[in-house]
């Protein structure tokens, strides 16, 4: 079953799902960073020339500034910004170690030093090829430093389930089946009506009814599963997986 996620297990037996981010999003993050650095560099260059140093001092300061923007910018932001440069933050991706822990100086330095190798022969040609070839979209720097670029977990939106009379399930259901019922009721407004009835008919072994009556019954089960009170329904539980934007 292709899922696009990595399931890491902690010693406590907890599974952490990480979703490695593919080349398009990473390229966007790089572009944002590039533009930011360009702007910052431009402004600082202007300031330096405004102050009016003599020629050699100015050249020295420019070179220093260039060095900092090229090499210190990604390292510092990634180490102190929870693995996110401003571009990555904007795009919603994050650098972590391949065991899910936050990165430190070692990882931040290594993966950004190897940019020089990824840049070869021109404009990240090698980095792009390795990213396309690697199952977890790692470029050379990531491979060496043992890091991954993953999507930042999105906040779950609180959604209201439609109201229903809480009702007990007729027989025990597995967790994923309970999730499916909650999902169905929650996504019902966005599903085409005919398709909704089809799905409700599929649930006939559970509800014992067909069509709209079955749907009504599913709503009641969902209300019961979500621990809804008859009068004022609280927001749904956090079990619904992240849906499309």
């Amino acid at each position: 079953m292709l899922d696009g996620r990595l399931h890491l297990q902690t010693p406590e037996g907890i599974t952490l799902p990480l979703t490695p981010a593919g080349p398009p999003k990473r390229a966007l993050a790089w572009l944002v960073d590039f533009l930011l650095r360009l702007m910052a560099g431009g402004i600082l260059l202007l300031l330096i020339s405004l102050v009016g140093f003599s020629g050699e001092v100015r050249t020295g300061l420019w070179l220093l500034l260039l060095f900092l923007l090229l090499w210190a910018y990604p390292v510092l932001f990634e180490v102190y910004g929870a693995g996110m440069t401003p571009g990555k933050r904007l795009v919603g991706v994050q650098v972590v170690r391949d065991n899910g822990l936050p990165i430190g100086w070692r990882e931040g330095l290594l993966r950004n030093l190897l940019r020089a190798a990824d840049f070869l022969p021109m404009w990240y040609g090698l980095g792009l090829l390795t990213m396309l070839a690697d199952p977890q979209f790692r470029r050379l720097g990531d491979l060496l430093a043992g890091t991954l670029v993953v999507y930042r977990p999105q906040k779950l939106k609180e959604r209201r389930l439609p109201e229903g009379t809480p009702r007990d399930l007729p027989f025990p259901l597995k967790p994923e089946e309970q999730h499916a019922i909650l999902d169905l009721v929650e996504r019902a407004p966005r599903l085409p009506p005919a398709r909704l009835l089809e799905l409700a008919n599929l649930a006939q072994p559970l509800t014992g009814r067909a069509g709209n009556a079955s749907l009504e019954r599913l709503r009641d089960y969902a209300a019961g599963l979500a621990g809804q009170q008859a009068a004022a329904p609280p927001p749904s539980t956090g079990t619904i997986s992240d849906t499309a934007r």
Binding site: M1, L2, G4, G22, P24, L132, Y151, D242, A244
Partner: peptide, 23 residues
């Protein structure tokens, strides 16, 4: 169906294409 049909953000769905292609 060989892929997990759970609705996911579009960019993650696009990334899934690479996994399918790799196979």
């Amino acid at each position: 169906l060989q892929i997990d049909a759970r609705p996911r953000p579009y960019w993650q769905a696009i990334d899934l294409g690479m996994a399918l292609l790799r196979r």
